[in-house]
Write a protein that binds this DNA or RNA. Structure first.
Ligand SMILES: NC(=O)c1ccc[n+]([C@@H]2O[C@H](COP(=O)([O-])OP(=O)(O)OC[C@H]3O[C@@H](n4cnc5c(N)ncnc54)[C@H](O)[C@@H]3O)[C@@H](O)[C@H]2O)c1
Ligand SMILES: NC(=O)c1ccc[n+]([C@@H]2O[C@H](COP(=O)([O-])OP(=O)(O)OC[C@H]3O[C@@H](n4cnc5c(N)ncnc54)[C@H](O)[C@@H]3O)[C@@H](O)[C@H]2O)c1
Lengths: 218, 218
DNA sequence: TCCAGTTTGTTCTCACGTTCACAAAGTGCT
DNA sequence: AGCACTTTGTGAACGTGAGAACAAACTGGA
């Protein structure tokens, strides 16, 4: 009975596990590229920087894709994880705010290789329009609704200054964007059903500094 | 008995709380700048995007800085949090890998305003040397040890390609860096006592995509 | 077929983090 | 002073996640 897991996967995977699946996937890609056909949970866990028991438990949420006494087939597991996290499909993405950070993001090839396609770069500053970054030209922010509708964009990235971020988020949500990655250092308010993840580089440094101070005072 | 909390704070604050303190601090800065002298846990929690009970419990790890029936003095609490997370001192930082992302980071003013000072920009590519970014000139990577020793650098940022990141980390650790913020999509191995935090933008998008896929299949 | 060896999938326990709910401690009006 | 009201700080209940440990399931050789 193998034809079960196809669209039946109604199990909900713990958040902590979801956050690690991309790490496992990356480790599997590396193993696959280096010609490894099979690996044990121990090996994969080492490559991913986690405990092997945790790895096995995480994978068990997806199904039973290993073979006892043998390990995991690298390419098979890689495909299963990719499918589970939606990397078998193509996700159109818009980036708003093409300043320092927006440029770096637009130029980043790692998004493309993981199933994300930057379909538009938007900025409110007319001076930036018609500049071409990584083959995509920068367009007025007001084109947002049109582009989201035309391309079926579900994911938006905000790289504007903090004071513009909430407005941009509101416009994105109104246009139909349902997931937002926010780089601006503000707390965004969005309606139920819209996911926001924030990346805050200052906070990361501040956490390091806290521990650093601890070490110094010890 | 107020003269207790000064250097006696041997309580260890939960990781989850440490990660939220910078958010509270930012909310307090905003409140302070808008002229608010006092705020309740409810108001501050709303500004920080968390539950008020969680906020109060978090703050209680620092000490008892509120007044029942009144709330918190904005500037006083702001100072206490700043002190606790080490933002009253200046942290010299080196950034290695001055490509797309490294440029953005070097230009980011938010680090400076939170107590971090970029003292060096290092890159292995000679073509980048002597370029000046945000007033700091790009130097050869081999200057690392000299700079770390001279400036007492404890925090390093890695923005090199993935295949160089482990080498850079090893050199940093050998030079005396004890905290690393890593943007390269690899798992770094470092000795005991060295802190690593990773920021992985692809993973953030992949997590959003997972949930997006879930919404679509519901 | 049987057995020794290997590795998965899962159960159980413990630690950590979140939220509720409320006593304790303040304010200000009468 | 007394009382009604506000808001903090925390104990206790609950939920989620991590890791140890082991039975179940497979391999390969005798
Ligand atoms: N640069 C970094 O490394 C870095 C690090 C951490 C956080 N951030 C945060 O990321 C955000 C962007 O940083 P940056 O350094 O790229 O800033 P930036 O000023 O270089 O770029 C911001 C861009 O957003 C555009 N913009 C402003 N208002 C807009 C609006 N309403 N709609 C559309 N576009 C708008 C501006 O025209 C500009 O091009 C900021 O919130 C910053 O705090 C940046
Ligand atoms: N650009 C982005 O938005 C983005 C997003 C997510 C992750 N990342 C990651 O951040 C890292 C940097 O990305 P980027 O786009 O800036 O790449 P990039 O190629 O533009 O820049 C990398 C820089 O590192 C330098 N370098 C290479 N090897 C080095 C070494 N051994 N020592 C010192 N310097 C060295 C190169 O000369 C180059 O200047 C990559 O690992 C990338 O995967 C980037």
């Amino acid at each position: 009975m193998t034809a079960k897991a196809t669209s039946e996967s109604a199990r909900d995977i713990p958040e902590a596990t979801v956050a690690r699946l991309p790490v496992y996937l990356r480790a599997l890609v590396t193993l696959s590229e280096s010609g490894t056909a099979t690996c044990s949970s121990e090996e994969l866990a080492a490559a991913a920087g986690v405990n092997s028991a945790k790895l096995r438990k995480d994978l068990s949420y997806l199904g039973s894709y290993g073979t006892r006494g043998v390990g995991y087939d690298v390419d098979y597991l890689r495909y299963q994880i990719a499918r589970e996290i939606g990397q078998t499909q193509d996700w159109p993405v818009v980036i708003v705010g093409i300043g320092n950070l927006g440029h770096a993001l637009a130029n980043y090839s790692g998004f493309r290789s993981r199933g994300f396609r930057v379909v538009a770069l938007l900025d409110a500053d007319p001076d930036r329009h018609h500049e071409v970054v990584a083959g995509v030209d920068v367009r007025p922010f007001d084109d947002l609704e049109k582009i989201v509708a035309a391309q079926g964009v579900a994911i938006g990235v905000i790289a504007t200054p903090a004071n513009a971020a909430q407005d941009v988020a509101d416009r994105m949500v109104a246009a139909g964007v349902r997931s937002i990655l926010n780089f601006a250092p503000v707390v965004l308010n969005v309606p139920e059903g819209v996911d926001v993840r924030k990346v805050d580089l200052s906070i990361e440094l501040q956490i390091l500094a806290y521990h650093e101070q601890r070490k110094a005072n010890a």
